[in-house]
Amino acid sequence: MTLDSLRSYGADVDDGLQRCMGMEDFYLEMIELGLADDRFENLGQVLKDNNMDEAFEMAHALKGVIGNLALTPLYDTLCEVTEHLRKKDAMDYTQAYAKLMEQRQQIINL
């Protein structure tokens, strides 16, 4: 994973890097830490159980972290999911969840 690859993925690298005081290594380390969060996996199970409150908590928390890391495409998906969950929208979350897991994997693979 490099700044360039992140940039080509669609991350707002300038924004994220500035938030990390321009420290490239620190930024990359925070991204790895943020993406390694168990809640990505756990969110799938909670959604399957239709536990909307807990799902909202998780999505909201992940959104907060990913937003600060400026991983824009993944952040946008998390925002979308969080807003549905906040409104407790009764819908099939399978597709949205699959999308965000794929985006996450995409970044890990960079």
Binding site: R19, C20, M21, M23, F26, M30, L33, G34, A61, G64, V65, N68, L69
Partner: peptide, 12 residues
């Protein structure tokens, strides 16, 4: 409660 956020703010 988010370690990433804590560390980013702490770093600033």
């Amino acid at each position: 409660d988010e370690p990433v956020n804590l560390r980013i703010l702490g770093n600033i």
